[in-house]
Amino acid sequence: MDWVKILIDAGRAAVGVPAAAYALSAIGLNLQFGYTGLLNFGHVASMMVGAYGMAITVDRGGSMWLGVIVGILLALILGLILGIPTLRLRADYLAIVTIAAGEILRILVRSSWAEPVTNGILGIQAFADEFFDLNPIPVGLYGIGRFRFDERTVWVMILGWGLVAVVTLFMWKLTRSPWGRTIRAIREDEDAALSLGKNVFGYKLQSLMVGGAIGALAGMFLAIDQQNVTPDTYIPLLTFYAFTVVIIGGPGSLLGPITGSMIFWFLFEFLDGVMTGAVLNDWFFGWFEATDIGPIRFALFGVGLMWLMIYRPQGLFGSHEEMLIDAQ
């Protein structure tokens, strides 16, 4: 087994495009789940409306900038529609409604009824030429040895990590303000916040909407990289990836989504390499075939999510004091 290759591939994944996209997506979810305590299982819907908002706008002759605005507006509206009926109910109801709403949306987008606008299951392609035309980086490979990326990937990575930096700065400003303190108070105890005169519903709605808008940015970024949106990309699994990223990094921590996403993608690629090698070398005594690697990885993903939630709910690097409080 080529350990060096496996490690380099894993390292590339940790700084690559999907890691940036999931860091961004997780920042939005972190605002909702980590800071406000909202169990939003329909985060993927925000990513979807963001991506489709942009793709459809460009498809109809609008500019990408207009598309970005449309995508964000759609995500804000989605948050409003989802939040108003559910945010007064208990956490588990929000989880059920949001996961259902995400699925309804996906069914609508892929339906023949919406096809004139969304192009049904085939989706929309090649809407980000404007962005790639701006690429100032000369053709070539950049990096050291095998740790290299082509000019297109570098350009997308600059956009992705640039977005992550800007949005993190925004979150820094927001969560360190009294507004941020109030949403954390709501996460700890809604009734206490109410008794202190805080409009809990209003704060939760704002958090859901803003987190959704950040999710929409993540969706757009992924769509730009792939130059492609199709409805069946946006399955609930994506939400659970984002949850895992948030939990690895530590819910309610400013940089958690970034470290979480890098660790997540590193381990993902690493595991993939190791298991592929193991199957080739027949370390499993022929119990598993190459086609089993995908499912096994998902099962291990489940084990990891359970383990994190039970033993490290404050993230891999959660503070000791917070752990103690959690155990009480």
């Binding site: 925004f170 400003k173 927001l174 303000s177 507004w179």
Partner: peptide, 9 residues
């Protein structure tokens, strides 16, 4: 005032 969203920002 910093307790409102825009005020906080």
């Amino acid at each position: 005032v910093g307790e409102s969203f825009w005020g906080g920002l």
